[in-house]
Structures are given as C-alpha cells and as structure tokens.
Design a protein around this nucleic acid. Structure first.
Length: 431
RNA sequence: UCCGCGAUAGCUCAAUGGUGGAGCAUUCGGCUGUUAACCGAAGGGUUGCAAGUUCGAGUCUUGCUCGCGGAGCCA
C-alpha cells in the first residue's frame, strides 16, 4: 500500500502519486470532472479531462458516489484555484467499495439527524477539526503533568460509594457485594496517589446521572484531576492557571488550521496568559448585585451568574472561597472564616462556565470524620480515605478539569455534544 | 421534576380552515475550470399517534409519544 498523504503533497509537485481515501464531493462540467478526495489528513481536488484519461477512468470518475472508498493516481501540481493549493492531474481511479445513498449530503442538516448518524458525521471537516483539537488538548494535558513530575494514576470506575455525596450516580449490582456505582470523580483515589507519588493525576471517564439537559452537560465525560501533596489553595490556583495557559497556547500554535476551519475568533484565547484574575466569592456576589441580578448570598453560582461574572474579565477568572455549605465534604474550611471552603472554580470566558473545580482538602482526621457524619455518608466506605489522614496526613490540594467543556470553549462550540466522538446524554446512548 | 418550543418527501423547510410545494439528495439529459457548481426533466407523501370540532383539518381543540432549548443539578 502507498504511504503518501494529502497533507504532504507539497513535497511531490510534478510527480505521480497514488492516494487512498474517500470521495468527499464531486462536480462536473461536461468533459471535465472534479473529484474531491479526503484521506483524513486533508482534501485534494482531482481533475479528470476527457481525452487525457482513458474512457474507463473518465466513466468511473463520473459514476463514483459520495463517500465511496477509492484509490486515485495522478500528477501533483500547484494550483491556486484549488482548496489547499494543490491539485491532482488525475489519470486513474479505482473504486474499493461503493457507497450507496450516503445520508449526510453537502447541505444543511439538523443536529438530531446528525447525532443519529454520528458515526458518519465524524467524517465531516468540522468534526475532524474539533476532534483533532480534542486530541491535542489531551496530549497537552499529559505533557503538562508528565513534564512536571506528576505520575499518571488510573483510578477505578466502579466504586462502592459516592465520592462527593452530592450528585446522582449510575447504580449497578456488583455480584454478591451489593450495590456499586459508576465513579463521578477519581479525586479521592488521586489523593491516595498524591501521598504515594507526591504529585499524581488521574485522567479518565466519569459519570453523572443527573437528568440534566443543557448544552454544558453529558452523562459520561472525561476529567483530568491532578492532586499535589504539601500544597495549599494558592499553590492549587498557581497550578491551574499555568495549566490553562499551557493548554490554550499549545492549541493556538499547534492547531491553528483546525481553529480556522471552525472559524473560531481566537482573540479571547490569545489572552489566556498568567496571571489570571482571582476574586473571592464575596467579590463575585458583589458583581452580581451591582449588575442587578437576583442573588442570595450563600447560594452557589448558577449558569447565568457565571456568565455575568466571566464577562467582566478578558480571560478565565478564578473564584475562590465559596460558602462551604454548597461545596463537597472533603474541602478544607478557611481558617479565617469557617463558613467558607478553600475552594476555587475557574470560569471560562464567553459563557462557557465552570471548566475547573478545585480545593485544598481537609487533612485533619477528626474534622474529616465529623464532615462525613454531617453529610450522612457511610463511614465504612470511607475508612480507606480516612486512613490517608491517620498515616502521615499532609496539607494537599487538587482540581478537576472537564475535558469536554474545555474543548467546547476552545473550539467555540454551541453544545458539548460535538466535543466528544460519541456523546452520552439523558435521551441518547446511541450510536 | 418544572417552564417553553417543535414533529410535513431521504435531508432542510414552506403552505390565510378550501387541489400539500420548494431547494438539496436520487435517476436521466446538457455543459472543458467547478468551489455546497450550474441548466433541463422525472420519481418521491397515511402531514408523529389517537380522538374531537367542522360541509371540509397539515392548519383549530384534547390526550399521548418522541425530540429540542432552558431552569434545577452538574465539570
């Protein structure tokens, strides 16, 4: 088989090449046929002139249908009229497998229809661009932590109890051991990792069974969660802002082409550089009151509230020290105000909402135990977690970043469902 | 769970209570530089399901089903 890809055609000008791929679209004008080939690395227009090619090749180029898999031979030439700048003066065409009635035509479709055909929709240029960016973000995430001496630690998906005791979990029967749940977070286990490695991170799928249906919600999504021993909330925020800067700047440099396909205005992304603004919950509430929003002190920030606050800044904003009542049991309270948790949320600009949630963890055994009781959590299930405080407990902090919300923000998507290959939502678990 | 909106050709959508149409896709024909090509023709419908009002319902009413957006909840 050949090894030439469309993205490399510039190196083959004047030479004959063989390309394998799928028919993206075709146009014709009597004695001339334009066949657009895609191979996953790009698109190239292949031109068939009647008379220059065999009748058989011309006939095949005329009959070949959208998304049929084909092998095309031709001579590469620079051509400013063609998309991509190169064109194939084609001579041969071979159909590997003919596609009949490909459902996604080069015309507009509704999202519902496209989601039903998601396995095919992935082939379109926009989806390819999004998922390439997603891949680069995932690589940036790993590169960032790997190069800073974090150890990647995979955490279990099947867990005996809720991690935070707040959200609704998917439930399953686990042999003779009774009920088990799909994990909503790897964080508690990452804390065990931090005590083993000093710096650890977990990166995997998590599950939320809330019957939520908004553009920001999936029932299955990917989350990366770093956890650092001997780190306080300020260290946590330092890490988060360096992390975000690295991801965004990497994508801007490495995936500029894809961002262009998405017609993403990158002005706000260019701004994602340290330092990010840090405001307290109290200051955030003050903004809401000033803007005339109906907001009661002590409540968590809603989607609208987050948008209003983030609109005050030209880059992601960190909101810290939330009321402990609206946060998880494991978060350490502010020594200067027990009503507040040493928590931080990072709100993305342009209405994309919370992309990071983190905190300093409660490291005191007695305090943590009383919190578990206050939240009516089953103590037996948390004995191992309490062990982390029995045996050499240290101040530690971490955060979780939602991958799909991050991809959506960077790509400028309307809905998170396009940020993951096969979205799982309340009314959709297929294809 | 609550609020709002929607369902008409394969797809995207029109249609004042009075003969259900268009564009794209498909098939056929034309065109030697097309950029979602264009031009001509053809095929394609139990208007989501059920009942009701009416001389007459895609259109009005009620119920149901499915979906979409938002709220709550969540990253």
């Amino acid at each position: 088989m050949k090894n030439i890809f469309i993205k490399d055609l510039g190196a083959y000008v004047g030479k004959e090449v063989t390309l394998s791929g799928w028919l993206y679209n075709k146009r014709s004008s009597g004695k001339i046929k334009f066949v657009i080939l895609r191979d996953g690395t790009g698109y190239v227009q292949c031109v068939y002139f009647k008379g220059n090619v065999t009748d058989e090749a011309f006939e095949t180029a005329d009959k070949v249908t959208q998304e049929s898999s084909i092998i095309i031979t031709g001579i590469v030439k620079a051509e400013p009229r063609a998309v991509g700048g190169y064109e194939l003066d084609a001579t041969g065409i071979e159909i590997i497998s003919e596609a009949h009635d490909y459902p996604i035509t080069p015309k507009e479709h509704g999202v519902e229809f496209l989601m039903d055909k998601r396995h095919l929709w992935l082939r379109s240029s926009r989806q390819v661009a999004i998922l390439r960016i997603r891949h680069r973000i995932e690589k940036a995430i790993r590169d960032f932590f790997d190069s800073r001496d974090f150890t990647l630690m995979d955490t279990p998906i099947i867990t005996p109890a809720a991690c935070e005791g707040t959200s609704t979990l998917f439930e399953t029967e686990y042999f003779d051991l009774g009920k088990a749940y799909l994990s909503q977070s790897g964080q508690l286990y990452a804390e065990a990792g931090a005590m083993a490695f000093g710096k650890a991170y977990t990166f995997g799928p998590v599950f939320r069974a809330e019957k939520s249906k908004t553009r920001r919600h999936l029932t299955e999504f990917w989350m990366v969660e770093p956890e650092v021993a001997f780190a306080n909330l300020d260290d946590d925020m330092d890490l988060a802002e360096e992390f975000l800067e690295y991801i965004v700047q990497t994508v801007l440099t490495e995936r500029a082409e894809e961002l262009k396909v998405l017609e993403r205005d990158t002005t706000m992304l260019q701004n994602v550089k340290r330092p990010l603004p840090r405001i307290s919950y109290d200051e955030a509430v003050a903004i809401l009151i000033k803007k005339g929003l109906p907001f009661e002190y002590g409540d968590d920030l809603g989607g609208t509230d987050e948008t209003v606050i983030s609109n005050e800044f030209d880059r992601p904003v960190m909101v810290h020290r939330y009321p402990s009542d609206v946060k998880a049991f494991y978060m350490k309270h502010d020594p200067e105000n027990d009503k507040l948790a040493l928590a931080v949320d990072v709100l993305a600009p342009e209405g994309y909402g919370e992309i990071i949630g983190g905190s300093q963890r409660e490291e005191d055994y007695d305090v943590l135990l009383s919190r578990i009781k206050e939240h009516n959590l089953p103590q037996e299930a948390f004995e191992w977690y309490l062990d982390l405080r029995r045996f050499g407990s240290v101040p530690h902090s971490g955060f979780g970043l939602g991958l799909e919300r991050t991809v959506s923000w960077i790509c400028g998507l309307e809905h998170v469902r396009e940020s993951i290959p096969f979205a799982r939502m309340i009314y959709r678990n297929t294809p």
